[in-house]
């Protein structure tokens, strides 16, 4: 390798190295600061008090969905491993919204309850045919394994 190329290689590698270090630090810092969502237990610990509007993420508690008869108002409870939070929402819910489904609600606190302006359903990265899912659910029965989102859409 001739000296000119060696010099260019050194310059470019050092610039690239500096850029990598800079972005690694930014990513590391953002990991601690950038919260897309708060879980119910984080909210109850007071982590979200500095925000008026924030996103609440967790699982819809089974049996907690209550729909109003004369409006689009829905109330349900969002839970995580350690906390629970009642949520109120008026509007159309996404297709995947159901019990034991992960949801992300945007809104603000009103006393002890969370008033959502938008509710999004999160789905996992597992894809399989319904027959296989049913067979697996059957195999899991009796072992008391909590399957998240094991209900089919049509059963809601």
């Amino acid at each position: 390798m001739n000296p000119t190329r060696k010099r260019r290689l050194t310059i470019i590698l050092s610039i690239l190295g500096a850029a990598v270090v800079a972005s690694a630090l930014v990513v590391y810092a953002l990991q601690q600061n950038m919260n897309y969502l708060f879980t119910p237990s984080q909210v109850q610990d007071g982590d979200a008090t500095r925000y008026k509007n924030f996103r609440l993420g967790g699982m819809v508690k089974a049996g907690s969905i209550q729909r109003s008869n004369d409006s689009l108002k829905v109330t349900f409870t969002v839970v995580d491993a350690a906390g629970a939070m009642p949520v109120e929402y008026t509007g159309i819910l996404p297709d995947l919204f159901r019990e034991n489904q992960s949801v992300i609600a945007t809104g603000h606190m009103d006393g002890a309850r969370f008033v959502a302006t938008e509710v999004l359903a999160k789905h996992d990265e597992t894809y399989m045919p319904k027959e296989l899912k049913d067979a697996m659910a059957k195999a899991h029965q009796g072992k008391h394994i909590d399957e998240s989102a094991s209900q089919d859409k049509s059963q809601l």
Binding site: D95, L96, Y127, M128, P129, K130, K153
Partner: peptide, 14 residues
Amino acid sequence: APPDYQQGDDYRII
């Protein structure tokens, strides 16, 4: 490919 257990046919855009 069969439909997905939770997303039905919508997942086919994958």
